[in-house]
């Protein structure tokens, strides 16, 4: 058992997966000699060599497209896109080939690959470095979308994503990269993709979040317990697609009230999909309208005002109290 940051835990997962399977290779901009701009791939070049850990030209579409080709050849590429804001350059290859090749080839060429990319705000970055566009990828048939919230589940989910037979978009909450340490077990760990985690049990209301906003969400839950004697259940989604509808529905069936938190823009965001599923499967148990605490339908703001855009624990707690007060 070691105390690790998320960066260290992700690095451990890459080491483990590359040791376990020599088809796994890591590629991207500045990931080899430099170890990645956030150092997630540090040390891999020395350990696994230049045929398995290599820098690419500065071309996101080319990175994803050639990674898909390598997956067709039977390798298991883990491609890093330096910031999720730059994945738009690769939309072409993600949509045309990464997501579709299994289907187009009628199963002959499954694309077992991972596109890792840091997402989200809160690090005082310039434009295009803070986006949360997971809804795009969740909307694309053929992809899986995974977003860890802490070091231990990040490590376990990355190992699972690399093993997965389908292409996985792996969003890393960069605000969490070095925010805290957590015990990470020594033995290899995976988590099943498509399964949410009950981060806190409670009876009064279900709070659903994922990724970086898990921290303010859990903080709000603790504050509500301490200050208002409110007992909130918190679900950490972990997997955006496939989504663990069962865990969500069971919880809301029990609590009857729900607030959903995410960083990305509200319209057609992940919360909208969760609400639709609760409408289909738990309508008769709902005691109040479901609330969303999300980013605005704006471009991610420049960093002097980014804290006004990002959901914080106060806003979340207020939405919970209002939902509880609804009759």
């Amino acid at each position: 058992m070691a105390q690790m940051t998320m960066v260290e835990a992700l690095n451990r997962a890459l080491n483990e997966s590359m040791t376990a399977d020599d088809r796994v290779c890591v590629m991207g901009q500045d990931i080899a000699v430099n170890g990645g701009v956030f150092r997630v791939t540090k040390g891999l070049l020395d350990r696994f060599g230049a045929d398995r850990v290599f820098d690419t030209p500065l071309a996101e579409d080319g990175i994803v497209g050639t990674a898909v080709g390598m997956a067709i050849y039977g390798l298991r590429p883990v491609a890093e896109i330096q910031f999720s804001g730059f994945t738009m350059q690769a939309f072409d290859q993600i949509e045309q080939n990464m997501a579709r090749m299994r289907n187009r080839s009628r199963g002959k060429y499954p694309i077992s690959m991972v596109m890792r990319t840091p997402y989200g705000g809160g690090i005082r970055a310039v434009e295009h470095h803070s986006e949360s566009r997971e809804a795009y990828w969740a909307h694309t048939p053929g992809l899986k979308v995974v977003i860890p919230s802490g070091p231990r589940n990040a490590r376990a989910l990355l190992n699972a994503a690399i093993l997965d037979p389908d292409p996985v978009v792996f969003y890393e909450p960069k605000a969490v990269y070095r925010a805290f340490r957590e015990d990470v077990p020594d033995e290899m760990e995976t988590l099943p993709i498509g399964t949410a985690r009950i981060a806190r049990e409670g009876a009064d209301l279900t709070l659903i979040a994922y990724g970086a906003v898990m921290r303010p969400t859990l903080e709000a839950a603790e504050d509500l317990a301490d200050l208002h004697q409110v007992d909130v259940e918190v679900i950490d989604l972990l997997s955006i697609k496939p989504m663990d509808t069962e865990t969500i529905v069971n919880s809301v069936t029990k609590t009857g009230r729900c607030v959903i938190v995410h960083e990305g823009p509200r319209t057609c965001g992940i919360a909208a999909e969760i609400i639709a599923r609760l409408n289909e499967h738990a309508f008769e148990y709902l005691l109040a309208p479901i609330r969303r605490v999300t980013g605005f339908d704006t471009h991610f703001p420049y960093f002097q005002v980014e804290r006004h855009y990002l959901p914080d624990s106060e806003t979340i707690a207020e939405a919970v109290r209002e939902t509880l007060a609804w009759e």
Binding site: G65, T66, V68, I72, Y73, Q93, N97
Partner: peptide
């Protein structure tokens, strides 16, 4: 043109796997 990087990726795989 969207298939062209796939061909290159296969060729990269051939070369890297060796």
């Amino acid at each position: 043109g969207s298939h062209v990087p796939l061909a290159v990726g296969i060729a990269m795989g051939i070369r890297k796997k060796g």
